[in-house]
């Protein structure tokens, strides 16, 4: 086992923790955090695999991908937080009720 593999493994672990938390936590801030952890995991994996030939210069492509990815995930985070604040302002809630309630008209 070499160093990049080690980090790749860490990435997978982080991803799994993130996805788990993303699914079971209800508070939106926590979900956004979990999303970031997932992202970090994936990015770690991507950069780790850039070291395919030990010792040689890492492949530049994954680096570019990760950079783009970070920008994307920050945009998501930022937008998600704006949305959260709006929801809080409007409804006073910080967690999502189930969609069947928001579509609400499924009574007899």
């Amino acid at each position: 086992m070499n160093q990049p593999t080690w980090y790749a493994l860490t990435g997978v672990i982080l991803f799994s923790m993130g996805i788990h938390a993303f699914v079971i936590r209800t508070h939106l801030v926590r979900r956004i955090l979990a999303f970031n952890i997932m992202g970090s995991g994936v990015f770690l994996l991507l950069v780790a695999i850039a070291h395919r030939i030990p010792g040689a210069a890492p492949d530049p492509v994954p680096h570019a991908l990760v950079l783009t990815g970070i920008v994307v995930s920050v945009s998501f985070t930022a937008f998600g937080l704006v949305l959260l604040k709006k929801i809080y302002a409007k409804t006073g809630k910080t967690a999502l009720i189930d969609p069947t309630e928001s579509t609400s008209d499924q009574t007899n």
Binding site: L84, T91, L96, S102
Partner: peptide, 26 residues
């Protein structure tokens, strides 16, 4: 409010989906 919540849920779904996708890409 319903639209906001729906939008949030959609956003979360997109987050989850895109991360899985990205892991696959990696």
């Amino acid at each position: 409010g319903a639209a906001l919540i729906a939008g949030m849920r959609y956003l979360l779904v997109a987050m989850l989906g895109s991360m899985c996708y990205l892991l696959g890409v990696a």
